[in-house]
Structures are given as C-alpha cells and as structure tokens.
Design a protein around this nucleic acid. Structure first.
Lengths: 232, 232
DNA sequence: TGAATGCTTCGATTACGATCGAACTATGAA
DNA sequence: TTCATAGTTCGATCGTAATCGAAGCATTCA
C-alpha cells in the first residue's frame, strides 16, 4: 500500500527556501563556499552548514574541500535540469544572483593560494599544462606525465626531491576567483618558488598578491603558451 | 537581498509525502477522483482535499468536476517532466500504482452516465464523432459541426427540438472507467434515447448497465466506424 | 606556539503545516 | 421527500524541522 517513491524527499530538500536559494545560487555552475551560500540563503553559517549536509546527503550538491574552505557545486547536470524545470513551473521567474569574488583586481590576476600560484595566471598555467599533456587528470586526481616531468625539470625544479616528500605531488585546487582549477600540491608550491627564484615575480606577504615584473610576465606567457617556440 | 525565486514553493508542494504520492499516481496520465487520490496517498479525504486545493493553487494539477465527482489530472506535460526528473534524482525508483475502475466488466463496457452513454462504447462513439469531424473540440467546449448536424439528423434525432432547450447541446464528460471523454449534454442524452428507441440496447435501471442486443451491437459498430459504408 | 578564519556540532526554541474528527454542502438515487 | 455518497471547511492537536547562540574542530598565518 505504501510503496512510496522517494521523490518527496528530494523535493522536500529543494522545497526549503534557504536550500532553494543555495541551489539557485549554484545554478550558474560556479562553486561557492559554505559561507557564501549562507549569505545567499540569508541564514547563519550554522544553519547553512546543516542545510548543506542535507543537500549533500540527498545527492544534490557535491563538496570539494579546499584547506579551510569548502566549495559546493551542483552534483550533476541532472540536478540543474530539474531545477531549471522547477523554475519553469514557478512561472519563469528565474532570478540570477550576484557572483562574488576578490574585491581587488590584482588579487584576481595573480595571488598566493596557501603556497602556490592562483588567480587568472594560476589557472592559465594549470590549463596550459593539461592542454600540452604535461598533466593528466582522472577525476579528482592529477598525475604528472613523462613529458610533464621533462617540462618541470627543464624549468629547473628538482623533481626527485619533491617525489621524496610524503606530501602529494600534484593536486588540483579550485580557484577562488576563477572558479576553475589550478595546480596545487608540492609541485605547485615548487613552481611558484621557482618563479620567485627566477625573479619573474615577487609575493606581497601582506596582501597575498603576486606581482609579476614586465620581463617575468613575458617569460610566463611563453611558459604557458599552448605551442612553445620549439614547436611553432 | 531576498529576491527569492519561488522554486521553493513549488518544490515544497511536491515535497510532502502525501502530495508526492498523489502526483506520482497521476503520472500515468489517468485522471483520479479526490477520494481515489486520498487512498493513494494514505490519508483521509479531508486531508486529501486540503492537499489537492494546494496543488491546484500551485498549478500542478487541474480539476475537472463531474457531478459529485472531482477528477484531478496533472496540469501539463511540464509538470510530468519535472516529476520524471525528480524520480530520476531519487535514483530511479519510479514505482507505479494500481489503477482503479468499476468492478464489473459490463459496467466498463457500456453504462448510463446520468442519462447518456458511457463506458467503452460511450468513448468510442465520442471519438468516432471527433475523428469524422462531426464534433469539434476547442478546449473544454464541444460544438456540433454542419456535417455532425447531418449525422445526428440521419440518426433520427430532432435536432431543432434539442437546440430549443436551454441546456447545453454538447458537452464532454470524463468517463469513469475509460478516463477519456464521452459525449454528454442534451445531444448525448438524445443519442442514448434513440439507441434505446431503435431497440439496439436497453438500460438496466438497477445497475446502470446498458445491455446491447447482438443486432444492436452490429448497428452501433457500423455507426461508429471510422469509414462508414457509403464512403468505403 | 598563539591568533584568526572557515566550518561543524550541540541544544533549545519556535513556528509552520500535516493530520483528522466533526459538521456542512452538493449532487445523485430511491 | 429521504438517504447515500463525494467533497469541503473548521478547529484543535501534534511533530517535525528550521533557526540561531555557544562551543568545538580544523586549517592557515605570523
């Protein structure tokens, strides 16, 4: 008699105003932190935390821990599709919200993320290394290819020393402002260190901004070009 | 700050277990009465009535009053699509339920609905008249075409007398067992009267069953054939 | 190490809504 | 008319879940 399909559970999950606000905030595909989502929903972080764990439990959002931050995004396209449909039923009042980001343009350009390069230039480096097959990504894990090892060594990094460490070599890190991945892990730290060592850039300890010199910027552009000189 | 999209309201509507059961019961496209939906949801009729008015208010279901019955169906395909999506998110556990109907096979075959023909034969007559463009349906209203007027007069009905009455000539009636429309209104009543008059069938006042004679059945089949003899 | 930040857990409060009994209306049947 | 059935409205009860303050972890930064 009571062979209930659990559609009610999922719908009830979406049915709370706070959670619905969070989900709609995630509809543009950008990952948001728990605190940001709390502000989107207009509730305290405690309440938001409770909601987010329920949404996660229900398979509607997927978390991605990033140091002391926790980024949430919609779990799948199917979730987005259902939300879109619900918006349609709610008579097409599909509001979109403001998207946050660092206030300072310099921070957005290049900054230190813990100890590696982040911001626009950080994601550019990462994506360049993916495009040129120096890094291979399978799901969440990242591994350095043979070609990538050569690239890193050519850049002047002691890869063997890094590998000897117990911490992970490569890790992807969800970028704060770009909302895309950049390179973290011990290799990411080493890359930034080498960039400083070469005098391409210096980091402002106070503001976390990474300031590239004009010459360093040129070198970096060349380093991250999709087709480096020797090939083109 | 609080520009809430009303997706939460809709989702909360679906999010109640009782209402979700009702909606899933309606997913097969068959209209159900309030009492049937109450039993589907496992609640009393009072509770069901409250739920149904909310669902109607939210635009998820559409009612259709039929004498002392009130049939509900999903308001649109969009609603069904969203429900389908939610079922998908709820890990594909899309249970379907039993569909009710009159217990007696004879009742299902042909019966009196107030004073016109209902059941399988009633819907067949109606659909035949639609197919042959004797009736034209615009939304809820039904009108008799010129060709239809000829068909009705040929059948031996005094159409002018019917038109003189103040009650509606043509009306569609949601069939109890077939869950599709059949012809009601004064024309529907006249059609059944003529069928009895011709000796094709007689109505059992006790059980509401309409019993066709073998010869009457043949005549009726011919009457409702998509391509009557003179055309084929 | 200690200070600051991001997030979680716990506990108590509070408010909303689902539920049903009882009474009422409407339609159909006898 | 009277009875039966379908559905609605009202009122009271009761549970559950959303909310936030306070305290507790975890992580980063100096």
């Amino acid at each position: 008699m009571k062979n209930g399909p659990d559609i009610a559970q999922i719908a009830a999950l979406i049915g709370d105003p706070a959670r619905a606000n969070m989900l709609t905030a995630l509809m543009n595909g950008i990952a948001l932190t728990a605190t940001e989502l709390a502000s989107e929903a207009g509730v305290t972080v405690q309440t938001a935390s409770s909601h987010l764990s329920k949404l996660q439990e229900g398979g509607l959002v997927a978390p991605r821990k990033q140091g002391r931050h926790k980024y949430f995004s919609l779990a799948s396209d199917d979730v987005a599709k259902v939300l879109e449909g619900l918006m349609g039923l709610a008579s097409g009042a599909g509001h979109l919200r403001t998207r946050p980001g660092p206030k300072d343009a310099a921070l957005r350009k290049a900054r230190v993320c813990y100890n590696h390069l982040a911001g626009e230039m950080g994601t550019r480096l990462f994506e360049s290394m993916i495009t040129r097959q120096f890094l291979r990504s399978n799901g969440e894990d990242i591994e350095l290819t043979v070609a990538g090892a050569g690239f890193v060594r050519d850049f002047g990094i002691d890869l063997d020393a890094l590998k000897a460490q117990r911490s992970a070599l490569c890790r992807q890190c969800l970028d704060w402002s770009e909302r895309r991945s950049h390179l973290a892990g011990s290799l990411g730290r080493a890359m930034l260190g080498r960039i400083e060592e070469l005098g391409w850039a210096r980091r402002d300890r106070k503001t976390r901004i990474v300031v590239f010199s004009p010459k360093g910027k040129l070198h970096f552009d060349e380093l991250t070009a999709s087709w480096p000189k020797r090939l083109g």
